[in-house]
Every structure is written in structure tokens, then in C-alpha cells.
Amino acid sequence: MNPLADILTPANIITALIVMNFSSFAAFGIDKALAEKRARRISEAALLNLAFFGGIGGAYAGREVFRHKTRKASFSNQLHMVAAVQLCALVFALIAFW
């Protein structure tokens, strides 16, 4: 069999998405706590990467729950762009593999 097909099972993909969303959510909470302490922060690039690699739902949830990065327009625009790219990729995948 194909080793890649053995790894990319629906169960493994779902597990990876759960882990990425939890990690993204937690990163927003941790960054908010660090901001309040005026300590060294998690970079915006790291937060956006977590969202890009499967944690977009956790990123949006973390923004709302922790009220973090909600007023910074440049970050919000980039996060919305990540969501739009993922939505387009999902639509393309559904059409291509239907």
C-alpha cells in the first residue's frame, strides 16, 4: 500500500485538526496573558501559522474568548485572508475529488 495513504486517514486528519485548533486557541490565551504582564509575546506570524495549518477555528474562538487581537486591523485582515484561502482550497478539493 501507499505509506502516505496509511497516514492520511480520516481519523488522523480529524485528530490533527483538533490538535491544531486547540493549540491555536491556547496560543491566543497565552499571548493575551503575556500581553497583560508586558512579557515577551508570541509573534503574530506564529499565531497566523497556527491558523493557516488547520487552527483557523481555534484562532477565531481564541480572539473572541480572550478578546485578543480584535482591534488590530492588519492582523484581522491577515486572519480573514487565511480563512478565505482555506475556504477556497476546501471548495476546490470538494469539486476536484467529488
Rank of each mutant, 00 (worst) to 15 (best):
C88R: 12
V85G: 05
T15H: 13
R67F: 04
S74H: 09
A11N: 09
E44S: 01
A33Q: 08
F52H: 10
M1T: 14
A27C: 02
R38V: 09
A26P: 07
N12S: 10
G57V: 09
A45P: 08
I42D: 00
T70C: 12
R38E: 15
R40V: 09
R71Y: 10
A73C: 11
G54P: 00
F22T: 07
G54E: 01
N21L: 06
A27I: 04
G29P: 04
L8Y: 06
A59F: 05
N2Q: 05
Y60G: 08
M81I: 11
I7E: 03
M20D: 00
A84H: 07
D31G: 00
D31W: 02
L34A: 13
R38H: 14
F66Y: 04
S43L: 13
K72G: 03
I14R: 06
T15Q: 09
R71M: 12
H68I: 04
A11C: 09
S74F: 10
C88K: 11
I95N: 09
V85H: 01
N21A: 07
R63V: 05
Q78K: 15
N2W: 02
A5V: 13
R67I: 08
V65R: 06
Q78R: 14
A61R: 00
P10S: 05
R71A: 12
I7N: 07
K69S: 01
N77P: 08
T15N: 07
G54C: 04
Q86K: 12
L48R: 00
V85E: 03
R67M: 01
V19E: 01
I95R: 09
L48M: 03
K72T: 05
I95E: 08
R38Q: 15
A83S: 12
A93Q: 13
A89G: 05
S43N: 03
K37M: 10
F66V: 05
S43P: 08
P3T: 10
G54A: 02
V65A: 06
A84S: 10
A27Q: 01
A39Y: 10
F22I: 15
S24V: 00
R38K: 15
F66H: 03
N49K: 12
F28Q: 03
L79W: 00
M20S: 06
A5D: 06
T70A: 12
P10A: 04
V91W: 04
T15K: 11
I42H: 02
I14P: 02
R40L: 08
G57E: 03
K32C: 01
G57C: 12
S76G: 14
R40F: 14
N49A: 14
I14N: 08
V82D: 09
D6G: 13
M20E: 10
E36R: 15
M81S: 12
T70P: 13
F28A: 03
S76R: 11
F53E: 02
E44A: 08
K72P: 07
I13F: 06
T70E: 14
A27T: 06
N49G: 09
F52M: 14
A46Q: 12
A45W: 13
R63S: 12
M1Q: 13
I42G: 04
A35P: 06
A61S: 07
I18L: 13
A84T: 14
H68Y: 07
M20R: 06
A83H: 08
